[in-house]
């Protein structure tokens, strides 16, 4: 966390163990098709959760509904973020309040400078927390320091947002944004996909550094490699728009060995929520 001696933080402080995100019986549809069919999940400060599941099971949909994507309509259920009704907030207010989504497919924005984008976005969050906004010079120092966390070359600041970035570079840029926004709840949607072996280690270490006792992380992933580097407290398996099973890190390892068929067979044997 940045120094708060000079500027008061408006955000009420988080205690480890506080419930940060609480999803109850969430149903959501897109293009007239129901994708989420009763998702429930509770995430507390200090926890790392992993969300796994087959392609098309609804993981990214869940993450986008949490972030407020307009294409998805919530038809039933609720999401609470701390003591707020998250669904009542606009996407930008969710981000300002400390909910972050690292996208599976970050979009390219031609002509918009990455540096300026990062600055505006960082300042939006700072403003919400009652911190002073950073001018171009102060921000450049700040962003260069922050880039070290994901070992990103400052040359990426001069380019347009994600334009022409390789798959792995886009993912690093997402983690950089996470580092700058200092969210309380970070959802990382397949941030490990497309990373080479070294990059995976770097990004995993970065995410670990950013996961604090006062924040929570939801890692959407298909691979054990990431979970070897960041040990999750809970592992959830999603299928057909529901969380089918919840366990600890051993569940992920079992999946790695046995595949999803094994779980499907165990349908209905839901483990209780933490």
């Amino acid at each position: 966390m940045t120094s708060t001696e000079t500027t008061p933080v408006c955000e009420t402080p988080v205690q480890t163990g506080d419930v940060l995100l609480s999803i109850e019986n969430l149903h959501a549809r897109v293009e007239g098709k129901e994708i989420l069919r009763g998702v429930s999940l509770r995430i507390r400060a200090g926890e790392i959760h992993a969300l796994m599941g087959r392609n098309g099971s609804g993981k990214s949909t869940l993450s986008k509904v949490i972030a407020g994507h307009p294409a998805y309509t919530v038809t039933a259920g609720a999401i609470h973020y701390r003591d707020q009704d998250l669904l009542a907030l606009s996407p930008e207010d969710r981000a300002r309040a400390g909910v972050f989504l690292g996208f599976q497919y970050p979009v390219e924005i031609p002509g918009v400078s990455n540096l300026e984008f990062l600055r505006v976005s960082c300042n939006a969050r700072r403003q919400h927390r009652g911190q002073e906004e950073l001018d171009t010079f102060a921000f450049e120092d700040h962003v260069r320091d922050t880039m070290a966390i994901v070992q990103m070359d400052p040359a990426f600041l001069e380019r347009s947002v994600n334009e022409g970035f390789s798959g792995g570079e886009k993912k690093r840029n997402e983690v950089l944004q996470m580092a700058l926004l200092e969210p309380l709840v970070a959802i990382l949607d397949e941030t490990d996909s497309g990373l080479d072996i070294d990059a995976l280690r770097i990004v995993a270490n970065g995410v670990k550094t950013l996961a604090l006792p006062t924040t929570a992380t939801l890692l959407i992933t298909h691979y054990q490699r990431l979970l070897d580097a960041i040990t999750p407290d809970f592992v959830h398996v999603m299928a057909e728009g529901r969380i089918l099973r919840t366990g600890d890190k051993d569940l992920a390892m079992a999946l790695e060995q046995r595949g999803y068929d094994w779980i499907d067979g165990a349908d209905g044997a839901d483990t209780p929520q933490p």
């Binding site: 994507h69 996407p91 919400h128």
Partner: peptide
Amino acid sequence: FYLQSRGIE
């Protein structure tokens, strides 16, 4: 949406 999800109005 990408920009909004980064806190931008």
